[in-house]
Simulated assay, not measured.
Amino acid sequence: MSDPASTGQRPARRSLREGIPLGRIGGVPVILAYSWFVIAAFTVAAYGPVLAFRNPALGAGAYYVAFAYALLLLVSVLVHELAHALTAKMYGWPSEKIVLNLWGGHTQFESFTATPGRSVLVAMAGPAANFALAGATWLVVSALHPTGVADILTNIFLWANLVIGIFNVLPGLPLDGGRLVESAVWKATGSHAKGTIAAGWGGRIIVIALALWFVALPLVRGGEPDTSTLLITVLVCGFLWMGASGSIQQGRLRSRLHLVSAAALAEPAVGLPESATVADVLRVTAGGGPAVVLYASDGRPTSVVDPVALAAVPASAAAVTPASAVAPVLGAGAYVPEWSKGQELLQYLAQLEGHDYAVIDHNGRVTGLLRQSTVVTVITGKPPRENTRPQDQNR
């Protein structure tokens, strides 16, 4: 979600960097990523000669038919992703966009509250759509008995949707079938995180199985895997492994969400008006007191006093030096209610600028200071990397 400063032309520029906008279907933006042209070129280069050999009458037209094959694959993937998006829309899950790319495509959702059952239904809608397309195409072929190029393309469309449907129900993330594993473990254990981790490991097992079947088995039998098959296997397995690993990492992070609480993680802080002087701050912080957050006349937190800059002010100038002179400005809206926690808190912080956030109570009074580094440490279990660039040290 964009803040006011990032509206206007920025979303359009971001879409253009990501790919070619194809418009909206069912209210969901569809983007054709530039990487799709890579798989389209590969399809033409790999399948064109095969078509020309099997159908000499086609001549150079075989390459146009191969390109039509790439377009039919694109349509199949688009229908698959639309099924996800429109099913999710039934449950009030907002779909941010559909991206069609080198790996097929994906539907990106905005934040929503999932349940095991609904997660399965949204996931399975994609393969179900492909099975429906395959079934409808089979009926057309059976009824019309097409010939020539029409016969080639309808059969390709039928088998492409059948393969896409079967492949996507394999039980491991990032494939749709992984949602079945995730939801089953989630339902059994009550832990969404454990379900995601289990489904991620399922994805890794699928990668190993594919590598054994398409690469290791031909070698064991004394043959060599076909070059095109080997390349496709490497690309698909690489994509699946990255997706499965990302799912495992996401599950591990989710398992720590209950530890993220603004009230629990914030260090003590007090608020002073922007009109306060350095002397006022020193009186509050005498003896190692709490952090000091300055607030505007409307009570909105605006800046945080820097202890190092505060200590550098001569004692003789403390009474006449405004506290704002030693207080770096907070990012716009960088304050959170002390009752914020979990995913809600993380999503809100992700929209804010800066690294420090004032924590306020129900009355708008400053009660603490939440550091981004503290949240990162709790979520990842590791301290954040220190940035030692001089320009960052002087901020």
Score class of each variant (00 low, 15 high):
L253A: 09
A269V: 01
A262G: 02
R283E: 15
V234T: 13
T229C: 10
L310Y: 08
Q249G: 12
V284A: 11
V236M: 07
A262F: 01
L240A: 00
A296N: 11
V313F: 03
R254H: 15
A266D: 01
A291N: 10
A315Q: 15
W241L: 10
L230D: 04
C237F: 09
G289H: 00
E267L: 12
R283L: 09
T229R: 14
L282S: 08
L253P: 06
Q249E: 13
G287C: 00
S255G: 14
S245L: 06
G289P: 00
S316H: 14
P307D: 03
A286Q: 14
G287R: 05
Q249K: 15
R252M: 11
V234G: 09
G246A: 03
W241I: 06
A311Q: 11
T302V: 11
A269E: 01
A263W: 10
A286C: 10
V293G: 01
V284R: 14
L240Y: 01
G271Y: 02
T229K: 15
E267M: 12
A264L: 12
E274D: 09
D298F: 07
R300V: 13
S303K: 01
Q250W: 09
R254A: 14
A309L: 14
S303D: 04
G288L: 09
S245K: 10
D306F: 04
L265M: 12
T233N: 06
R283F: 14
G238A: 06
S275L: 10
L272A: 08
G246I: 00
L230N: 08
D298Q: 07
D280T: 04
V281G: 00
R283C: 09
C237L: 08
G299T: 04
L257H: 12
S316Y: 08
A311G: 11
E274L: 12
P268T: 00
T229A: 13
V313E: 06
T277F: 05
Q250C: 07
T229D: 15
C237N: 07
S303Q: 01
G287F: 02
V292F: 00
I232G: 05
H258D: 07
E267K: 12
V281C: 06
L253K: 10
L310E: 07
D306G: 06
V313D: 08
L257M: 13
L231R: 11
A315G: 14
V270E: 03
I248F: 05
T302I: 10
S255D: 13
R256C: 08
A244Y: 01
D280F: 03
G271N: 04
F239Q: 07
S275Y: 08
G246Q: 00
A312W: 13
P314K: 11
L230K: 04
M242Y: 15
V304M: 05
V260I: 14
G299R: 10
T229G: 09
V270Q: 04
M242H: 13
R283H: 15
T302K: 10
V281S: 02
F239G: 02
P268Q: 05
S255Q: 14
V270Y: 03
I248A: 03
V284D: 10
S245W: 06
A269N: 01
D306H: 08
G238T: 01
I232K: 04
D280R: 11
V234D: 13
V292L: 02
L310C: 08
E274K: 11
V308R: 15
S261L: 04
R254N: 15
